[in-house]
Design a protein around this nucleic acid. Sequence first.
DNA 1: CCGTTCTGTCTACTTTTGTCGACGGGTGTC
DNA 2: GACACCCGTCGACAAAAGTAGACAGAACGG
Lengths: 135, 135
Amino acid sequence: MPPRAQEDPTPAEWQVLSLVWKAGPLPTRQIIATLQEQTDWSTSTIKTLLRRLVDKGHLSTRAVGNSFVYSAKKSPQSALRRAGETLLGHANEATVAPLLAHLVKKSGLNRDELAELRELIDDLSQDAADEEGKS
Amino acid sequence: MPPRAQEDPTPAEWQVLSLVWKAGPLPTRQIIATLQEQTDWSTSTIKTLLRRLVDKGHLSTRAVGNSFVYSAKKSPQSALRRAGETLLGHANEATVAPLLAHLVKKSGLNRDELAELRELIDDLSQDAADEEGKS
DNA sequence: CCGTTCTGTCTACTTTTGTCGACGGGTGTC
DNA sequence: GACACCCGTCGACAAAAGTAGACAGAACGG
């Protein structure tokens, strides 16, 4: 399976990545401990995933004592955006809107975040109106 | 790689699936023709993808003449939602909002759709206010 | 010092996914 | 009827992803 934009993390890798994003730079020991609470992966498996993430450039390591501390190399945003765009790419005119609605509902944004999002939408509506009025 | 919630389509499969969603029930011949305009997959490859999608329950077939007509078995919505939820799952408090904003921006919704989304957000804001006010 | 423990590296094995070519049965056409 | 075409099914094979055991050296407790 040749082309798999090798920068995209695989499902299992996402899980590791998310943890590092969420909990900041972490030593191997801790990553393993935390992940083993959520999954039933063996120690080896996690180490392999970690190694592959480093290989793919998602994580970077810093030696501390006899072990490594992993930190995200790229911003979570960029990876999430990429993945998000891929998702949008799968939708079409008829399905985009419902999809967005679903995501917003499920996202659990708080009041402030919702307000901000609404502002964004207002701006976009304005643009859309200009666009559509023009043509 | 044992457990891959076998219902989730793989990248290559998504492409086939999207086509069927977009263009409604289609005969093999057409699917192949269309996909070969977008990719450089061989006929065999596409047939295999089609077969696997049927196996996984994403598409259903109906024999028409000496060939098959494929149609989506599940609504595009459900597959998109699943994928969307997976994506949300990768984000966290700090990254969800920016992600959503990005998606809305990229989604290219038109005026009406934006208006509808805005209404949804207003509703949610109301709920959030209740929630937060209560506790 | 010496065995125990922890850590990272290697190697390896199984499923999936990505891609196809080879076949075998219909159909249509001179 | 003989031959060229479509079509679907099989079988295959390489690369990627998932999962994990084995091993070597550093660090640690006694």
